[in-house]
């Protein structure tokens, strides 16, 4: 007797698994939002929850918005610091004036309104230069430690949004140091998330240039800090 082939019943359909909700981009990257509130909300997000902010940051695509963010936010702190220097006595300049008194060019350390205005005008240009060179150095270091998984644009975006830390320069006298520390922390967290790398590699990528190339600057700042405290205690 011929056997009749009965096909097996089709497998049941897989259970419905809802797609994970799409993560909303940071407000500044949402073109539907008005720029000023989006800028303020983005700054708040990076200050209050940097990990979430970097998770919501796109790692590729148009870099116009991140650059504009960096130029705006990264200029505010230094410009306010320049304005401070016009009205507040700066101990660093006082030390430099004493050290180089009578030497050619020492007038550079006698702050004038013209010098302050010069500094304010050139801050945005310095921000652009610093972004490109800073991102390049950090990305090369990230490649050297084996953590560059998302390309240079991701690093550039992280460096752009890490300039949120420059806002700390609005704090008189110690604002520069605070801003440096804040930017370094933001860059570490941003690289870790954007490049899907380990915390150690992100830390190494940010601190290698500080340790290797900028060891002179760090030692100079420490020496200057000690001198300032010495003067203040006198």
């Amino acid at each position: 007797m011929d056997q009749v082939f009965i096909p097996p019943p089709p497998p049941p359909p897989p259970p419905f698994v809802p797609a994970p909700p799409a993560v909303a981009p940071i407000p500044w990257e949402d073109p539907s939002r008005p720029p000023a509130p989006a800028l303020i909300e983005t700054v708040k997000l990076f200050v209050t929850d940097m990990a979430q902010a970097f998770r919501r940051m796109p790692v590729a695509g148009d870099i116009g918005r991140p650059l504009l963010y960096a130029v705006i936010v990264g200029s505010i702190g230094p410009i306010i610091a320049q304005v401070y220097s016009l009205f507040l006595p700066n101990p660093i300049y006082r030390i430099l004036q004493e050290r180089f008194a009578g030497q050619a060019g020492s007038a550079l350390f006698h702050r004038s309104a013209a010098a302050g205005v010069f500094g304010i005008v050139f801050v945005p240009m310095a921000v652009v230069i610093g972004l490109f060179i800073g991102a390049g150095i950090v990305h090369v270091c990230l490649m050297m430690v084996g953590g560059a998984n998302s390309g240079f644009v991701a690093t550039l975006r992280v460096v752009c949004y890490a300039s949120t830390g420059q806002l700390a320069q609005v704090v008189p006298l110690i604002g520069g140091l605070l801003a440096f520390v804040f930017v370094v922390i933001l860059e570490m967290k941003g690289l870790e998330i954007a490049h899907r790398t380990t915390t150690g590699k992100a830390i190494a990528a940010v601190l290698i240039p500080v340790a290797v190339c900028c060891v002179c600057v760090v030692l100079f700042v420490v020496t200057l800090g000690a001198a300032i405290f010495g003067m203040l205690n006198r």
Partner: peptide, 19 residues
């Protein structure tokens, strides 16, 4: 974004020469 990076490179180099 790559063309933007190239333009940024040019702006940064121009800024360095200017300053």
């Amino acid at each position: 974004e790559e063309r933007q990076v190239l333009l940024l490179w040019g702006a940064a180099a121009g800024g360095v020469l200017l300053l």
